[in-house]
Amino acid sequence: MSISNEQAQAYWRENLRIIMTHLAIWFVVSYGCAILFVEQLNEIPFFGFPLGFWFGQQGSIFVFVILIWTYVFSMNKLDEKYDVHE
């Protein structure tokens, strides 16, 4: 292991922060928009869809894809910052 203990802990903390931000969005989009608040959002029309229905069947899937890729890029940057990349 080339990095010190403190650095490893700092890396892990930043990693956890990135994970939590992404999971918060993941939760809001799928459980929030498409399940808990679906009725309220369905009042809003969105390109021919009721908005809540759109989130459940289309929107959340698009957001999931974007989330994984932003996570990949943030982690690649973080790995370089702490010099733990391969």
Partner: peptide
């Protein structure tokens, strides 16, 4: 929707 989201959203958990 539960199936559509469930079977794709799991990948976010997997990746993260």
């Amino acid at each position: 929707s539960a199936y559509l989201m469930g079977w794709t959203g799991g990948y976010v958990l997997l990746a993260l």
